[in-house]
Design a protein around this nucleic acid. Structure first.
Lengths: 190, 190
DNA sequence: GTCTATATCGAGATAGAC
DNA sequence: GTCTATCTCGATATAGAC
């Protein structure tokens, strides 16, 4: 792997752990084992490198989620599998963290991949939910677009609650709750 | 209002807007109209001032929420009123934002008021939900503790989605979704 | 209590040698 | 491509005058 990729990977980790404001070029270089010269040769600056790193993180988040959505099972099963997928809860979401970073939100170019990722996620969740309704796996008494946003929000908010408590349990409670609420809309088949 | 209070208020605003890592003592002083000397006379440093500011923000968050929980109405009505309360969505939660700040989470003293606030919030939500079940306003088919975490997570996650999209609409979708899901558990009375 | 001066360090970037 | 030297600021804090 070239130095350029090592810089991107180092940046990906630090953006996940500390966000954009909390990550310095120096820290990125040290973790990558590269010097100043390398970084400013391959990238125009901190923002340019961060953008490359964010795009890769975003692609990974989408691929991980799509693996569940496109997998086997009924719609409610896939939603639950997405919610209960193994996660490093206290680290949180590689992309969602950036939505809380003032310098990311303020910069259209840096915010764009974050916006796209969550736009895509809500769209996919809504599609799965709508498919479940049309197949009769889920009752028709809710708006798939609204509940898709709810499911995505439970995951992101669950991370926040878990970090506040320094305990992953709260995340799992939040997931349990929405699974229970959704279960009331699953059509019984016996 | 004394200089000390102006420094705290200035810090409260900046912590809300930019988080702890993104807020400098200099910025706090300028917004407060105070000099270096004042700040370091009243507080031992950035962390000390931040702690005072966080505690006030936390108290305000709790008071705002309690006003709804202790108000009139059935349990599901109060939960919905809490969710639909007027909010400055794109600014997000004064306390929740800090759960994403690496230097807050890493410092036990700074994290404590954040943990307490969300512990309290989940407890109050759970109490309202349990009360609703015991009064027969809500069906018994869910765990109040789990759904309390879900409701709190929807709010925090809704802020994250809205900031990612730079559009408050997503927050309201997430709220709509959980209200719709919860409605299936409300006992019909006619 | 508040001010100004000063100190140290790191952030972020540029320049030019190799 | 990568290195070291250097630059400018701002972050954070201390010291001592007023």
């Amino acid at each position: 792997m070239g130095t350029r990729d090592q810089l991107i990977d180092s940046s990906r980790e630090l953006l996940w752990e500390r966000g954009y404001v909390g990550t310095s070029p120096k820290a990125i270089q040290q973790r990558a084992g590269a010097g100043q010269g390398s970084m400013y040769h391959h990238f125009t600056g901190k923002a340019d490198l961060a953008l490359a790193a964010i795009r890769r993180n975003a692609a990974e988040v989408r691929a991980d989620a799509e693996a569940v959505f496109a997998g086997p099972g009924t719609a409610p099963e896939r939603i639950e599998r997405y919610l209960r997928r193994e996660r490093d809860v206290l680290r949180g979401c590689r992309v969602g963290r950036l939505a809380h970073d003032p310098d990311i939100v303020a910069d259209a170019a840096l915010r764009q991949p974050v916006e796209e990722t969550f736009g895509w996620l809500r769209g996919r969740l809504a599609a799965v939910l709508a498919e479940g309704q049309s197949r009769g796996e889920l009752a028709a008494g809710f708006d798939p677009v609204a509940v898709a946003a709810t499911v995505a929000a439970v995951v992101q908010g669950g991370y926040a609650l878990a970090r506040a408590a320094n305990d992953p349990a709260t995340f799992h409670h939040a997931v349990d709750g929405v699974v229970q609420l959704l279960a009331a809309h699953a059509t019984t088949r016996e």
